[in-house]
Write a protein that binds this DNA or RNA. Structure first.
Lengths: 202, 202
DNA sequence: TGTACATCAGTGAACGCGCGTTCACTGATGTAC
DNA sequence: TGTACATCAGTGAACGCGCGTTCACTGATGTAC
């Protein structure tokens, strides 16, 4: 039952997409190869016609997921400062918190990536750095060096906030965690102010 | 071979301590019950004399780890503002990044805690909130509400920074991630200034 | 305080199960002539 | 363009292994008298 080259490429792509969603929703270790193949409508044995090991799939899935995520950021950034700011706010929204499948892999499997193999960490780091570069373009800092620093802080803080918001079992505290991050990292420039925004409460 | 009550309590404590370290260094899913028991010098069968399930052990281990971590924060906070600030800086140090065993569970297994059971998430959330409260005491904000907001932001940002610093495979970028977080979240008050510290570079 | 007995911490074999990976096989695809 | 054959995507059984959990058993501990 050999398939055409086009079909083979499609199948590989399908496995990759299912893997990305499975890893992000269930975690890397807790997701099995057979489970992914079943999700792609295939039996488990054919997996090794497309990937050498599960580890390699993890690396490719991480790279694919990050590439998609970076693209969405670049598209938003290309739409101007307002569009970019909206994208930062969406990252820190309850919608992103509650949506594991389409969300950021660095949030969904962050602590698992720490223990992943070299190729996977490389892909994750590359994606992280790409995001930093996109964010840096819209930072108010004059020189690019301190703009990148600010972007580096912004991104790592956002990832921490969404991760904790997902973990926290108290809905009010979870929402507040996102709110305070949004106020500080992606403030609405409704009233002109150069400095970091302060809390709008109390 | 029944053991005395004191011995039984010691054994349970030993299992818990081994579990805390194993979960933090290898992750929850990747750590087996037999492995933990072997680490405590026991065979795997006796595990169920101390805990009902692996999930329950995870919850207890999470609670124990967070309690220890909160205590270290409280001790540092009791030593005055300088001592407290030093503790924040230590959290964002390369030493904490490289030390999985004694470090913060929210960093080590953050994305796994999202998928943990209710009891574990409760323990993690409680620990998180306790840390927020300790940090809030030393925040410069006047009213306690916005001090807690600032502490909430500080803690979630610190967790994101250390998690990403552990994942990043480029040593310079990893160190810079910690640096920029330290500058913004735990600035040295060497020259008196009320506002958030700026980058000391560029 | 001493004896008889119930309790239960810990052992190690065994349970069913799913894991990642391998392999013989099938048959459509792609290639060589 | 048509035929002969090598390739290889996908199947499904099987591999060894480790998982969480159970259980019969042992013998020291704690208790009741």
């Amino acid at each position: 039952m050999k398939k055409s080259r086009a079909e083979t490429a499609q199948t590989r792509q399908r496995i990759l997409e299912v893997a990305v969603q499975a890893f992000k929703s269930k975690g890397i270790t807790a997701t099995g190869v057979a489970e992914i193949m079943a999700g792609a409508g295939l039996s488990h044995g054919g997996f090794y016609r497309h990937f050498e090991t599960k580890e390699q799939l993890v690396a490719k899935a991480c790279a694919a997921s990050m590439a998609t995520f970076v693209q969405s950021f670049e598209a938003a950034a290309a739409g101007g400062h307002e569009s970019f700011l909206k994208h930062l706010q969406d990252f820190l929204s309850t919608a992103h918190r509650d949506e594991m499948l389409g969300g950021c892999a660095l949030v969904a499997i962050g602590s698992e990536l720490v223990r992943a193999d070299a190729e996977t960490r490389r892909a994750a780091t590359q994606g992280f750095e790409d995001l930093v570069d996109v964010i840096a373009k819209w930072m108010p800092q004059k020189d690019s060096s301190s703009a990148k620093d600010e972007a580096l802080f912004t991104l790592s803080a956002m990832i921490g906030a969404v991760t904790m918001a997902r973990m926290i079992d108290d809905p009010a505290l979870s929402a507040r965690t996102l709110d305070v991050a949004r106020e500080r990292l992606a403030p609405q420039p409704s009233r002109p102010q150069k400095k970091r925004a302060r809390s709008t409460r109390g």
